[in-house]
Design a protein around this nucleic acid. Structure first.
Lengths: 145, 145
DNA sequence: AGTCTTTAAATCGTGTACGATATAATCGTA
DNA sequence: TACGATTATATCGTACACGATTTAAAGACT
C-alpha cells in the first residue's frame, strides 16, 4: 500500500501546472506580466471594475495573496486601486488605459496555448469537463474534512 | 477572440492543484509535513538515498527550490544531507529513522485522496493517461520556444 | 444612538517557485 | 598534467500562496 510517485495523480496535476506556466511565461514577458497577473487581467477584461474579493472568487485566492500582487500591478501602471465610495470596505480594481490595451495581445496568447496542448477544441472541452468534475469532488471532500 | 476565465483550462488546472493541496494539508499536518515535503518523502520511501538533482528530476524542481526546503526537512529531523564521498559535488539525501517510520501513514493518506476524487481506480488511470499526454505536448511546445 | 456581529482588506510570518549567478568538484582533451 | 568546459549545489532577489491576526466599515438589533 506504499504510494509511488509514478502512480500519484497529484504529481501529474502539479507537473501540468508547471508545464502550462512555462509556456505562458515567455509569451507574457514582453507584456511585463506574470502568469497570475495575466489571470487577473483576463478577469478585468471581462468585467471592470472588480473588487479584491471578486477577483479572489474567480481565482480561488484571498486578500493575503492578492493585496501585495495588486499593489505591484498598480505600481506597474496596469490597474488602479480605489475605495468604493458606496462601501468604503471594498477596493475597486480597474484597468488603466495601458492595461486595457494589452487586451489586443490576449487572443494570440490563447491561440498559442491551445496549440501547445496539441488537442482539438472539442477534446479540450471534454477534458476540461472531466477535470471540473474531479475538482468538484475533491473540493467537497476538502470541505467535509 | 477575447479569452474568458470560464474557458481557460489553465485556470482549472490551477484550481485542481489548489483543491488537491487543500485535501492533503490536514492529512499531513499531524506529520508536520507540507505537501511538497510529502512528495519528497514518497520519493525517498521508494529509493534511498537520492541526490538533490534526482529528487529534482522527479518533481521538476531545481536546487534553488530544493536546497532551502531540504534544509528545513533536515532541521525537522526527517532527513540527513551528506556529501557523496565518491563525488563531492553531490549531496545525498537519506531518511532518518523518524522519516522512515512515517511511511506507515502513507497508505491511508493515499486512500483518502483516491476517495476524495470520487472516481474508480480505472477512471483515475484513464484520466491520468490523458493528462500525461497533455503534459507531454505542452512541454514539447515550451521547449520548442 | 449604542453595541454586537459580520464583512472586506491589509498585515505578518513561513514556505514554495524560479531566473540569474556563484562556487567548487569532476571531466575531457591537448 | 594542466586547464577550459561541464556538472551539482548553493545563494540571492522577486513573486506567489496561505494560516492567523488586525483594522475599519457596514449591518442588525435593542
Amino acid at each position: 500500500m506504499q504510494p509511488l510517485l509514478q502512480h500519484m495523480l497529484c504529481l501529474d496535476l502539479y507537473a501540468a501546472n508547471q508545464a502550462v506556466h512555462r509556456v505562458y511565461k515567455p509569451l507574457l514577458a514582453p507584456l511585463g506580466l506574470t502568469y497570475l497577473q495575466y489571470l487577473v487581467m483576463v478577469g478585468l477584461w471581462e468585467k471592470d471594475p472588480l473588487s479584491v474579493s471578486e477577483i479572489g472568487a474567480r481565482l480561488g485566492l484571498e486578500s493575503n495573496t492578492l493585496t501585495p500582487m495588486l499593489k505591484r500591478m498598480e505600481a506597474a501602471g496596469l490597474i488602479t486601486r480605489r475605495r468604493d465610495p458606496g462601501d468604503e470596505r471594498r477596493v475597486n480594481i480597474s484597468l488603466t488605459p495601458e492595461g486595457d490595451e494589452m487586451r489586443a495581445a490576449a487572443g494570440e496568447i490563447q491561440r498559442c496555448l491551445m496549440e501547445a496542448t496539441g488537442r482539438s477544441e472539442a477534446e479540450l472541452l471534454r477534458f476540461q469537463e472531466d477535470l471540473r468534475g474531479l475538482i468538484g469532488n475533491v473540493r467537497r471532500a476538502a470541505d467535509d474534512g
